[in-house]
Simulated scan of single mutants.
Amino acid sequence: MTQAKVCFIGAGNMPRSIISGMVNNGYPSSEVYATNPSQPKLDALKADFGIHISNDNLATAQLADVIILSVKPQLMQQVCEQLSSIDLSEKLIVTIAAGIPASRYAEYLKQPIKLIRTMPNTPTQIGFGMTGLFADDSISNEQKSLVETIMQSGGKTLWVEQESGLNQVIALAGSSPAYFFLFIESMVESAKKTGMSEQQARALAQEAALGAAQMVIQNPHTSLATLRENVTSKGGTTAQAVETFEKGDLRGLVDSAMTNCINRAEEMAKTF
């Protein structure tokens, strides 16, 4: 299945980023399809990557070996029920939607299916993404490898053994870019109060964030606590800032935020 025909149902930012990675990494654009109700996003995909485009979900899905469901969760049932009129027994279904459990797709599609759930994050758009994947025992190693290759075009991947693990992926990777954006945003806002320009503050904060992430990546055997302590001289400026975070219970706030994120994913599983 190395030259499998891959069809994206939906043409938003995430499928665009995955398609970009696939084509730029050598996947034949002639084997990639995308469908969408409106035309502008499709036209842009065709112009930029040379893929096939269509407004017809059914006709395009019939051609595909792999169907990647990339619509919003609230639209998933409607889209799947439309696709249920075709035989999906020889096709692999992949979903990038949060919250909807694997078992629900068989109900929506009204037939037994082979499905891989994935949870990518927005840095996939620039090749630094992290995608969680889950598949049950019905999925072959060849099918897993194909989907892994597709998703690795936008970054790294991690398989979870239990489907519930995808909710942890959401909290740790899927949603977490927003946490870091909020933290950087807060730092910039504080710096602006002291008279620094937004441009200067952003440049300093974003490079510090990038550098810190690289230090974590390049020192895999050094604990995060040690990395923090190496920057924190006793009685110094960093110690004062860290102490303020600790007194404000930053750890507890982060724990609550991630727990609430997981709880919301579990709620969504019951809603859709």
Rank of each mutant, 00 (worst) to 15 (best):
C7T: 06
T226S: 13
S54H: 00
L63H: 08
E189M: 11
L115Q: 06
Q152W: 02
M14T: 06
Q206Y: 07
T124M: 13
I18E: 14
M215L: 15
K5A: 05
G154I: 03
Q125G: 05
A205L: 10
R117S: 08
S84K: 11
M130R: 08
Q200A: 15
P37C: 08
A203V: 06
T271R: 09
N121S: 10
Y27F: 12
M215H: 03
A97R: 09
L109V: 05
A191H: 11
L75F: 09
E148Q: 15
I126F: 02
G10H: 00
K247I: 03
T157V: 12
G235R: 13
M187H: 06
F181H: 13
L172M: 11
T149G: 06
S186G: 12
T259H: 07
S70P: 03
M258V: 12
A203Y: 11
M268P: 02
F49L: 04
L69K: 10
L224Y: 11
Q206E: 12
S85W: 01
P123T: 06
D136I: 11
I100H: 01
P101V: 07
M1F: 09
A97G: 00
S186A: 15
K5S: 06
P120M: 12
A135G: 03
L42F: 08
L45Q: 01
D56N: 13
V242R: 09
S30L: 14
A173P: 04
A203D: 04
E148A: 14
